[in-house]
Nucleic acid binder design. Structure first.
Length: 419
RNA sequence: GGAGGGGUGGCCGAGCGGUCAAAGGCAGCAGACUGUAAAUCUGCCGACGAACGUCUACGCAGGUUCGAAUCCUGCCCCCUCCA
C-alpha cells in the first residue's frame, strides 16, 4: 500500500510501523487535517532507556509533520500496577516516588518536542488527573458494560497467562480497562484520535479504540511500533553497566555515544533510520559502506543519536574523547567525559592502592573483581598492563603532571588526577 | 478449609547429611583474532584479605548433628487439585 501522509510515510520508510488498526483510514485522515495522537509511558523508573526511544522518535516525527503529540505519564496506572505497597506510609512514599520519576522522565522530552499552548505544541499529561477521581460504581455502570470477559480473555496478554497457568490478578485484568479509559478521556478532552505504543501494548490499544467507538460512535486509531532487537536477536539496551539509560545522571553522554558506536554492522542502517533524523538517501549511502569503513557510519549514528538526547555539545565531546581514546596515542584527557577521580595529597604520600582506585572509578564493583581483572591481563595503567595487584599510585606516578588513565579492558577507562 | 507439589547465585536449573561458594546452561566481564563489529576459541564470574584463610549466602525463624542447601518444628510466599 502506498501511503500519502507525511507522517505515516516517514514512519513506514524508517521502520516504525508494526501494525495498525486501519492504516489506510488513518492515512486519509492525516492528509485532511492535523491530528492529535498520544503515547502512554509508565513511571516505574527514574529514566527511560533506549527501549522507549522508538516511542519518543515517533512523537518527534508526529510533531515535525505538523501534528500534535500528547505525552501521557501513567501516574495513576503505575500506582495501581504495583500491588506491593500495602500499608499507608509506603503507599505515600511510592506516590512521592512516582512524582519524582515523572519529573525526571519528563526532562527527556524537552529536547525532542516543543511544548506549549499552541495548536501544534506538545502537551505533557498525567492520567492521575482523571483516574484518581473515578467513582467505582459509576465507572462500572458507565464503562463496564462495554467490556466483555469473553473478549478480554482472547487478548494475547491474558491468553498466554492462562495457557501457561500463570496467575493473573483482577487488578492486572483491570489495567487494560483503565488504559482504554485514558484513550476515551483524551479523545473527549483533546480530540486525540490515535494511540501509539509498543507491540506489547496492542491489546490495550485495541481496547481503547473499541471503547471510544462504543461510547462516542467515532472511529479512532491504534498503531504499534516493532520491538527493536539487535541483529543477533538480543533485546536492545544492555551494556556493562546495565540498562542504556537516557538520563545523563544514570549514563554519561560518553557511554551513551559508545553504546551506539558499538552497534553491530548489520544494525547500522536500521538504527540510523530509527534513531537519527538523517535523510534517507544519506542513510542509504552510509549503510553501503563495507568492512572497516562502516565504522564511519557508526560514528555518525553515535553522533546523531547522542545529540538528539544530550545535545550537540555533549555529542561533540563524546566523539572527541572517543577519538583520543581509540584512535590516537595522545594523553591529554583533561576535557574528556571519562569518570575522573582526584587523589588527595595524603593519599599521594601514603600511596593509593590500585585495587581501590578501580572500585572508586566505578570500573569494577569490588576489589576482587579488580584483582581478577589484573590476573586476566585486562587491567592497564596508561596502556601498560598492570602486573602487580598490590601496586599503588603515588606522587611519582604522575610523570609529566597529566592525569593517569586506568583501564578495564579496551573500552572502559577512568582518569586519576592529583591535586 | 482439605490434599499434594514447590521456594537454590542476575535468570533458568541440578544437588537432597560431609568431598558445596553449590553441577550445567544463559547473561556478563577479560584475553586472543579483528574494524571500539559479528562469529569463534580461552580464562574469569559472592565479599574481604598479600597469603594459610575469614565472613556472608540455597524463602524466614528455631532445632537435631562433630557437621545441614540437604533431616525435624513453626511461620511466610507460590503452584495444582478438591470444597
Amino acid at each position: 500500500m502506498s501511503l500519502k501522509s507525511d507522517f505515516l510515510t516517514i514512519l513506514d520508510t524508517r521502520g516504525f510501523i508494526h501494525q495498525a488498526t486501519d492504516l489506510e483510514g488513518l492515512d486519509t485522515l492525516l492528509t485532511q487535517e492535523p491530528i492529535t495522537a498520544y503515547i502512554g509511558f509508565d513511571a516505574t523508573a527514574r529514566s527511560f532507556h533506549v527501549g522507549s526511544l522508538v516511542q519518543i522518535m515517533v512523537l518527534y516525527w508526529l510533531q515535525q509533520t505538523g501534528n500534535r503529540p500528547l505525552v501521557l505519564m501513567g501516574g495513576a496506572t503505575t500506582k495501581i500496577g504495583d500491588p506491593t505497597g500495602k500499608d499507608e506510609s509506603r503507599k505515600l512514599l511510592s506516590e512521592e516516588e512516582i512524582r519524582e520519576n515523572i519529573e525526571k522522565l519528563s526532562t527527556i522530552f524537552s529536547r525532542a518536542l516543543t511544548f506549549g499552548k499552541g495548536p501544534k505544541d506538545a502537551l505533557l499529561l498525567n492520567n492521575d488527573a482523571w483516574i484518581d477521581s473515578l467513582n467505582y460504581s459509576s465507572f462500572l455502570r458507565d464503562y463496564g458494560t462495554h467490556f466483555t470477559i469473553n473478549r478480554m480473555l482472547t487478548f494475547e496478554s491474558v491468553r498466554l497467562r492462562l495457557e501457561r497457568e500463570h496467575p493473573m490478578t483482577f487488578l492486572e485484568f483491570n489495567y487494560m480497562i483503565l488504559q482504554a479509559y485514558d484513550f476515551l478521556e483524551l479523545y473527549k478532552k483533546y480530540g486525540c484520535c490515535v494511540q501509539i505504543g509498543g507491540v506489547d501494548q496492542w491489546g490495550n490499544i485495541i481496547n481503547g479504540v473499541e471503547l471510544v467507538r462504543r461510547v462516542t460512535h467515532k472511529t479512532v486509531y491504534g498503531l504499534t511500533t516493532p520491538l527493536i532487537t539487535t541483529a543477533s536477536g538480543a533485546k536492545m539496551g544492555k551494556t556493562a553497566q546495565g540498562a542504556v539509560w537516557l538520563n545523563a545522571d544514570l549514563l554519561s553522554p560518553f557511554e551513551y555515544w559508545q553504546f551506539w558506536r558499538n552497534t553491530e554492522d548489520k544494525d547500522v542502517g536500521r538504527f540510523l533510520r530509527l534513531f537519527t533524523t538523517l535523510p534517507l538517501d544519506e542513510i542509504e549511502r552510509l549503510e553501503k559502506l563495507e568492512g572497516a569503513e562502516i565504522n564511519e557510519a557508526k560514528k555518525v549514528l553515535a553522533d546523531k543519536a547522542t545529540a538528539f538526547i544530550h545535545g550537540e555539545k555533549a555529542a561533540q565531546e563524546a566523539r572527541e574523547t572517543a577519538h583520543k581514546l581509540f584512535e590516537t596515542t595522545q594523553a591529554n584527557y583533561q576535557e574528556s567525559s571519562l569518570p575522573t577521580l582526584m587523589l588527595t595529597q595524603e593519599e599521594l604520600e601514603k600511596g593509593a592502592p590500585i585495587l581501590d582506585l578501580f572500585c572508586r572509578l566505578g570500573l569494577t564493583s569490588s576489589k576482587g573483581e579488580a584483582r581478577r581483572l589484573i590476573e586476566g591481563g585486562g587491567a592497564r595503567l596508561n596502556d601498560t598492563p598492570i602486573q602487580n595487584e598490590l601496586s599503588v599510585i603515588t606522587a611519582t606516578s604522575f610523570q609529566d603532571g597529566s592525569p593517569l588513565k586506568l583501564s578495564a579492558g579496551k573500552k572502559r577507562h577512568g582518569l586519576i588526577t592529583k591535586p
